[in-house]
């Protein structure tokens, strides 16, 4: 069974003290109550006395993995939801960050995030890499039972219906790029959206330009997207765009048996091939 937020919070606080005692870390990145907002926000803890600030709640939506990249030469500890742990495994596989510089406190049997549709179709409920864990592990049978019959977003729509869906959704998009910024695996120093040599995106925001932005971003996502839903959670306009990356997430699984961030040794989808790869729809 998924663990309760309360238990996880309690165990996190205990383990945090342990981590501080056992490692010379620069800081511990976890979730805490925002001083002004009252929401659950990322907090950077510097010493064991602060351990009680750690919490885990149903609004712990941000992906903490992304906050580590800025300080990566230092030894850092991080509280990782299972999806976050996959992002970390992906970082390590791409050489973005070294495993030796990470102390990972994984959350077993993740109870999910309120309002995040990705959690309903989540296929990783235990961390893939961790040095410490909190909560009880969720068994494979249990996970399979929960996923039984679950469809991914927009799976059952026809392409024409989806086209309409995106027309409606992207009429609200302002191209603020919050979806990109929240995404744990969108970490390029120079993103194509800001590039003007070549100029991938034309200036201005209109529904069709927004669609181009999303199509292009989605094409950067196969083999990277860990299907965490942070993009959708971050959107100030409440736009549903995760279905695009999610679709490719599932297709890569079907076609290449590939799931991003499952192990730090795994090559990325596009840096690898199999001579027997299928060619669906090729002439």
């Amino acid at each position: 069974m998924a663990n309760s937020y309360k238990e996880i919070t309690k165990e996190l606080q205990e383990i945090a003290a342990e981590v501080f005692a056992e490692h010379e870390i620069k800081h511990l990145v976890g979730f805490g109550r925002g001083e002004f907002s009252g929401l659950t926000e990322p907090v950077f803890l510097k010493n064991p006395e602060e351990a009680e600030r750690l919490i885990f709640q149903d609004d712990a939506a941000p992906m903490l993995s992304k906050y580590l990249l800025k300080y990566k030469p230092d030894l850092q500890a991080v509280v990782a939801k299972p999806c976050d742990s996959r992002a970390l495994a992906y970082y390590i596989s791409e050489g973005k960050i070294s495993r030796d510089n990470l102390v990972i406190i994984g959350i077993n049997g993740c109870p999910g995030i309120e309002g995040n549709t990705a959690c309903q179709e989540c296929d990783t409920r235990n961390p893939v890499i961790a040095d410490y864990t909190v909560g009880e592990e969720m068994s494979q049978q249990e996970l399979e039972a929960e996923l039984e019959g679950v469809k991914y977003l927009l799976e059952d729509m026809t392409p024409a219906e989806r086209k309409e869906h995106y027309s409606r959704e992207f009429s609200r998009c302002t191209q603020c790029y919050a979806c990109r910024d929240a995404c744990p695996v969108c970490y390029c120093d120079h993103c194509y959206v800001e590039s003007n040599q070549p100029e991938w995106l034309e200036e201005g925001s209109s529904a069709d330009k927004d669609m181009i932005f999303h199509l292009m971003r989605t094409m950067h996502m196969p083999g990277r997207c860990v299907n965490c839903g942070a993009c959708e959670m971050a959107c100030p306009e409440g736009i549903e765009m995760r279905s695009m990356t999610t679709h490719l997430y599932h297709r890569a699984k079907e076609l290449y048996n590939y799931r991003p961030g499952i192990s730090p040794e795994q090559p990325t989808l596009f840096s690898d091939f199999d001579k027997e790869d299928s060619e669906p729809g090729f002439l």
């Binding site: 086209k163 695009m244 679709h247």
Partner: peptide, 8 residues
């Protein structure tokens, strides 16, 4: 191809 066909 999969992405573009998916989205219409």
């Amino acid at each position: 191809k999969d992405l573009l066909e998916f989205s219409g």
